[in-house]
Design a binder for these strands. Structure first.
Lengths: 142, 142
DNA sequence: TAGTAAATGAGAATCATTCTCAAAGTTTTC
DNA sequence: GAAAACTTTGAGAATGATTCTCATTTACTA
């Protein structure tokens, strides 16, 4: 019994939602080998083994996983929403090189704390930070 | 103060593109009073005075303004792309309410400074910060 | 002013995401 | 353990932002 399964079960139970087979399959797929994914890729992956899990259910399950604190919507690319794990991963931010496209993941705790404090001034309750920057990495700057 | 007009004109000329009336109208509307907008709102605003400027042209003009360095795609909310000025505006960050979709713009200088310092440790040179968070605004938290 | 290349409006097309609804699954109650 | 009382599901339709098509118009150049 892995932790993320337990977290999801607890979340479902708490909200009077049911632990169904499709939800199990989707959860497993999400945590199988992706740190980063979109619904389409997830569907392809799941569909190879479980042809009876529909796209609709995957779309419906994403908000639950987000609410449960297991994943978050991380970025939009190719006109699609992308998601990433939160559970088991430290919060991080992305430094994206405009030249080579490489993505550096940096520790974001300090920045997030500052952002939390700032939000307080607006009486805004943060549930999810999205922090990043674009520029040039060491190599591309020459 | 028409610097943004000149920048756009120069960009168009440089790329053998034409300075048309719709492009003028759109540029003016973008810089009229928005620090922040989506295509739909822009269309409504323009359409009141200029009923002959189509949505298609607005959509087609956004990439040009981005290429010209005048605006940037800043965030996605309510399933829509949002844009913001780069030219002539202070940097800010967005707090997006997950319930009502309202967007609070907060001063980002402090957070950006911290992010700059962090980037230094990775020998990364930031040219553009993207900082935001999602959660609940004062009203929606009840 | 004509020639020509680019731009436009209108509406169709696209495509990710959400919704609908009847059928099926899950939990509860006795 | 079966039926009641809810939830969830799959399939496909619906939605809605964005992009594309194409016949027509416009801006610039010579």
């Amino acid at each position: 019994m892995q932790d993320h399964v337990k977290i999801f079960e607890d979340y479902l139970k708490k909200h009077n939602l049911k632990l169904t087979r499709p939800r199990h399959v989707i959860l497993a797929a999400v945590f199988a080998n992706h740190s980063h994914f979109d619904v389409d890729a997830l569907y392809d992956q799941i569909h190879q083994k479980y042809t009876d899990v529909s796209r609709a259910t995957i779309y419906r399950t994403m908000p639950l996983l987000i609410e449960a604190g297991l994943i978050k919507r991380s970025l939009r690319s190719q006109a699609r929403d992308h998601y990433e794990h939160i559970f088991g991963h430290k919060h991080h931010l992305h430094l994206i090189c405009n030249k080579c496209g490489s993505i550096i993941e940096a520790e974001s705790a300090a920045v997030e704390t500052l952002l939390q404090n700032l939000a307080k001034r607006y009486n805004f309750t943060i549930t999810e930070c999205n922090i990043g920057a674009r520029g040039l990495c060491e190599k591309c700057r020459e």
